[in-house]
Design a protein around this nucleic acid. Structure first.
Lengths: 341, 341
DNA sequence: AAGATTTGGTAAAACGTTTTACTAGTTTTA
DNA sequence: TAAAACTAGTAAAACGTTTTACCAAATCTT
């Protein structure tokens, strides 16, 4: 019933040609290898007729190439990563590559495990949103000569291709925007991490605040507290405390989301008084009342740039490619939430 | 520099044992095949020492199994699919499977292409959110004896394992909820498609409205118009027309999103008067003012059920498994947007 | 006319596994 | 004590490609 897929061998038998000849023709080396027009035509026609497709697993085994890329993100369920994933998927498929997505939860153990698994599977390249402590693993990957491009963040003391946005400038600009709108007591709510993208955002915030002669208020939540009561309570305390906070700059989307929920249950009116700017845009920020001012990352551009670099690495004969450090600009989208009321 | 990964052959040479023996030991068949304790230990220790990992591509070629599943969705960038993807990913990895995600855009041509590509790649199973016209392709897949589970929708005249929600009941219930809250003129905005999930939702709406002695108003947009001016205008016309619509039930998340945007730019106050219920929940529906009543699909359960069936199929010796049709219940989450004002 | 080159291919090794079929030696059975 | 059964493995084929090395016949060169 379930008839076997035809292999080159079957074609060879049917056409009375050697396997080698067929392989050459299929790989477009017919002319080069002086196969006659007639034989080429005969093979091509037959291949078309029986709708033959080479077995990719066998090809992979022989060539060591899998035509599979890995895109490792924090959480594929998160809008930011899912959107980039979609962009990357499209570009990859166009060039005959497939993409395996995986979520590392910004967790080193999980990241390591995933890298190992896919390395074994001989994927051709890694696009990685790295968790904080996997510098060594990235280094090893590169040592074994497999293309790696980091995204969203990188390691200051490890030279790896990466594409990020200018977090410092974006954060400074966003903070300045609040200042320009008359806010005097701007808080910064972020994640407690040493990762470069967050450090840069914090620096941008601090510098803007200090240059304006204001004083910074920073709340940095441990990653694991974000969706737990501890985290919530800290945010509540900040928003309702006697510190006179009149506006908040959120360093990442899930903090904003969590905080908006808190505000909603704490005191729905508060949202009309509080100045808000957040990192990472979302369709609902436009819809929300008041609409939420956001720093939008250039997702399309980011995905394209990532893939541009990846393909460059995949194509390289063996000449070393100098490390590419691509820095894109984020865009501030001013909306109602940052207008002084 | 880049030293080759060790293969079984290398181990054989190092330990002076045959390749066969090593393979047996690695596959846990040491005892069964009467390999002595010492040899087993020797092999295991060495394997541990050099951190040997079998080449999965070679394994795949030999066994015909790839340990890769495909999850084909409409758009991996869409929250609904991205969340399920994340759940599936976790379950799969636990059992040693990887998941390739791909987006078919609810487009038949693209779906077919993707199925072909992955079929060639010898993935072990397909989890598919099918586009409308790929019944034949699904059938072929099943004929070639590869596990397929459909999700979110299925084909009425094709017996394939699937897990869906009870769309009819959910839609009826949601509509009834609006009726119970005093709305008299409830519109239904949906996609113009023959797909079962949408037809069921429409039926549920119609039946509820008719049973209450009210008259239905249905707007069905062609898929490609959703984000285009044509679509927007139709929605605008419906919302502002002289038809006296006092509430809307949206059949899917991107329609709600699009409509909320339209409302916002058309007349931000409108949202406080209009009754709204939507299919598919979202964190922002809780945050929004007013918060939006939603029919929440049981994502976790859905993912788990999908994988439960998939693993059952993957494990089957060859006894036929009767077609599993799993129907889950959605949950209505009443919020502010459906309270009569 | 003999050596060199070109034409049009082919045989066989290799990629790294799994698995079937076999074996030489030892122990048990009757 | 001869046959049977068991022990502890091994050799080799197979999965489906790519690629290197080779070859015989035809043609060209001098």
């Amino acid at each position: 019933m379930k008839q076997k897929r035809p292999s080159i061998k079957d074609i060879a038998k049917a056409l009375n040609v050697s396997i080698t000849t067929i392989s050459f023709v299929l790989n477009g080396k017919g002319e080069e290898r002086k196969i006659s027009k007639e034989v080429i035509k005969k093979i091509e026609d037959y291949v078309e007729e029986i709708n033959y497709r080479p077995n990719q697993v066998a090809q992979s085994l022989r060539t060591g190439k899998s035509k599979i890329l890995v895109f490792m993100v924090e959480d594929i369920g998160n809008r930011f990563f899912a959107k980039i994933a979609r962009i990357i998927e499209d570009i990859a498929y166009e060039k005959g590559y497939k993409v395996l997505f995986c979520s590392n939860e910004n967790n080193d153990k999980r990241s390591r495990e995933l890298i190992r698994v896919f390395h074994e599977r001989q994927v051709d390249g890694f696009l990685i949103i790295p968790s904080p402590g996997i510098k060594k693993d990235i280094e090893n990957l590169i040592k074994s000569d497999i293309p790696v491009v980091l995204a969203d963040r990188y390691f200051e003391d490890l030279d790896v291709h990466h594409v990020v946005i200018n977090n410092y400038a974006a954060a400074q600009n966003a903070t300045q925007h609040l200042i320009d709108n008359g806010y005097k007591n701007i808080a910064f709510i972020s994640i407690d991490t040493q990762q470069i993208q967050m450090k840069d955002r914090a620096r941008g915030y601090r510098d803007a605040v200090q240059q304006a002669g204001l004083s910074p208020t920073v709340l940095e939540l441990p990653f694991e507290e974000i969706h737990k009561p501890e985290g919530k309570n800290k945010i509540k305390a900040l928003l309702t405390g006697s510190n006179g906070i009149d506006s908040v700059f959120f360093s990442t989307n899930y903090l904003t989301q969590a905080s908006l929920e808190i505000i909603k249950e704490l005191d729905p009116k508060l949202i009309y008084d509080l100045g808000i700017v957040t990192f990472d845009d979302n369709e609902f920020f436009r819809i929300n009342t008041p609409s939420i001012t956001a720093v939008a990352q250039p997702l399309q551009e980011l995905g394209e740039e990532l893939m541009r670099i990846m393909f460059k690495l995949l194509k390289k004969s063996d000449k070393e490619i100098p490390v590419i450090k691509s820095v894109l600009d984020a865009e501030l989208l001013p909306r109602e939430s940052s207008k002084k009321k």
